[in-house]
């Protein structure tokens, strides 16, 4: 199978993905990759974005380990790139 970008999903957000933590997607931008993950697993994007389209403030996005802002969703990604969704979790 040809290489594809990977969207990595943190465990708290793996409800809609049915436990899948890495989703190979067909996309050339961060936005397209996330949309492709949503197409595979409806409900995934609602955990990342507010209904207004803003990034939920407890979510951060990284491309190959570098954080990107909401305005950078059109950052291009290649077949070997990783789009990581990060959220903090701890008990207390």
């Amino acid at each position: 199978m040809a290489a594809m970008p990977i969207v990595t999903v943190p465990p708290p957000f793996q409800g809609p993905t049915l436990g899948q933590g890495e989703i190979p997607v067909d996309g050339t931008t961060v936005r397209a990759c996330l949309a492709a993950a949503e197409a595979k697993f409806p409900g995934f994007e609602a955990q990342i974005f507010e209904s207004s389209g803003a990034l939920r403030r407890f979510v951060k996005l990284f491309v190959n380990g570098e954080q990107i802002a909401l305005a950078e969703l059109d950052t291009e990604v290649g077949p070997d790139d990783e789009v990581a969704v990060i959220t903090p979790i701890a008990g207390g």
């Binding site: 939920r56 403030r57 407890f58 990060i86 959220t87 903090p88 701890a90 207390g92």
Partner: peptide, 12 residues
């Protein structure tokens, strides 16, 4: 993403 302690987890 976790610099404000466990209380930041509330909305998640």
């Amino acid at each position: 993403t976790f610099q404000y302690g466990t209380s930041a987890v509330v909305p998640i």
